[in-house]
Every structure is written in structure tokens, then in C-alpha cells.
Design a protein around this nucleic acid. Structure first.
Length: 230
DNA sequence: AAGTGATCATAA
DNA sequence: TTATGATCACTT
């Protein structure tokens, strides 16, 4: 249940982003009356949840985009002092069972990435959480070339899962999308299938966007901003 | 320094 | 357990 009403248009959502752009996380947290953690070691999702709260996300932990009426997914983008993304971006969990009939068009990855609100956050290992700063959020949808590569990555990875090659998938597969473990630890297990179609216990996996890909998005965004100013 | 594999909190 | 939010930490 959101305490802030969900935005009813992209324009409204963007203006909410513009209001908070430039604020430190300490300032924003103070506005909301919430405590800032010392570090993110045991609060890895804190910044993302602070933004969800601030901007009026209403999806809860349902497997659907954060702003349900607008079909927009919110993603924080940790960037260094040079504005370069430093981490991969989690997209969604990878379905390890019943993958045979799935298509890119009906996939959760495509659905979640159909429209994304990226919010850069100036981050750094030595920078206290309260001093980290919000950048200007921007909307993104894949262009034809990007979607082609995302679809190809998804199809290759999903096919490996369907063929029972789960255990040979590494983070090295995929140009833009990769699959990596997504669980509490090595001991958390879920069901998958092996090459003989037998059910096996395996690590939960998730789809992630490589940092090398989100770097390109930010470069493109900065370029278009400069063009708009010039 | 970059990239991969491992890990943490919380809700339902 | 599986979904959400990701970053940590070790290897290369």
C-alpha cells in the first residue's frame, strides 16, 4: 500500500524525479522521516526502496513493473564520480521449469524492460550512504538494435535452460543479458531440470543487464541531453 | 579495474 | 519458497 499516490502519467513521474534530482540520500531520507543505514552491507535494496516510496510505486513485490498503471519499471543505477555505472542491474528471476513453450514476446524480461525509469545514484565504496546523490532520472525503451540483442540473449539462455544445460550457464553467456545466481546463498535451492528432463535442485538464477550495457544507455542519454541544450 | 559468483533483508 | 530491492567480495 503506497503512502504516496502512484503517478498517473510519465510527465508526472518525471517531474517527481526532477524535484529530487540533486538531493543527497540523507536529505531525501530526512524528508521522509526514515533512518539512513551506515552502509548497504545488510541493506542492499535500501536505495531502490527509498525511491519506490518517494515516487509512488504500487507493485509491491508482485512480478510486474513498479508503476502498474503506466507499465514502467523503476531501476536505480549506481554510478561513480565520472557518471559510469558500476554494477549490473537485476531484471527478474529466471524461470527454470516449463521453459519449452516460452517466447521472448511473452517473457517477463521483455515485459519488465518495455519501459524503464533509470535513476542514477552517485555511489562509491567509500562514500557514506547519506552523502550519495540522486541524479536526473530518465525513461528508456529498447531501440530496434537493442531489442534484437536482448531477444537473442534471452532466447539462447532460455534454450539452455530448456535443454537442461542449466549447470553450464555462466555469467559469461549473453551480450547484454546474463544469468547469475539470485538467492540468499549457495545453500538456497530451487527446482530445475537436467539434460534428461529430470528435476534437480539447483541455485535460483536471475537475469541481469551487464554494466557495459547500462553504460551505453547513460552515454546515449547524456548525448541527447547535450543535443537538446545545443 | 572489471567481471563473475555469492550474498543480505524482507514480505507473502 | 519465490518474489521484490540489489551490492558485496573474490577472482582474473
Amino acid at each position: 500500500m503506497p503512502l504516496i499516490e502512484p503517478p498517473t502519467s510519465e510527465t508526472e513521474l518525471l517531474s517527481r524525479c526532477q524535484r529530487i534530482a540533486g538531493l543527497s540520500l540523507g536529505q531525501l531520507a530526512a524528508e521522509l522521516g526514515v533512518d539512513v543505514p551506515e552502509n548497504l552491507l545488510k541493506a542492499k535494496g535500501w536505495i531502490g526502496q527509498l525511491l519506490e516510496f518517494t515516487l509512488g510505486s504500487d507493485a509491491g513485490n508482485a512480478p510486474r513493473p513498479d508503476f502498474t498503471a503506466l507499465n514502467i519499471e523503476l531501476k536505480t543505477l549506481p554510478v561513480n564520480a565520472e557518471g559510469v555505472p558500476q554494477e549490473s542491474t537485476f531484471v527478474c528471476v529466471a524461470e527454470l521449469l516449463n521453459t519449452a513453450g516460452q517466447t521472448w514476446e511473452s517473457s517477463l524480461v521483455k515485459h519488465k524492460l518495455s519501459r524503464v525509469l533509470w535513476v542514477p545514484v552517485l555511489t562509491g565504496k567509500g562514500l557514506p550512504v547519506a552523502e550519495r546523490r540522486l541524479g536526473q532520472g530518465f525513461f528508456w525503451s529498447a531501440n530496434v538494435e537493442q531489442e534484437h540483442i536482448l531477444r537473442t540473449d534471452w532466447q539462447e539462455l532460455t534454450e539452455m535452460i530448456a535443454l537442461g544445460q542449466l549447470e553450464s550457464i555462466t555469467a559469461r553467456h549473453g551480450q547484454y543479458l546474463q544469468i547469475r545466481p539470485k538467492g540468499a546463498n549457495k545453500r538456497s535451492l530451487t527446482w530445475g531440470i537436467d539434460a534428461n528432463g529430470h528435476k534437480i535442485k539447483t541455485l535460483p538464477r536471475g537475469f541481469y543487464l551487464r554494466a557495459s550495457f547500462t553504460r551505453q544507455l547513460l552515454v546515449a542519454q547524456n548525448t541527447s541531453q547535450n543535443n537538446a541544450i545545443a
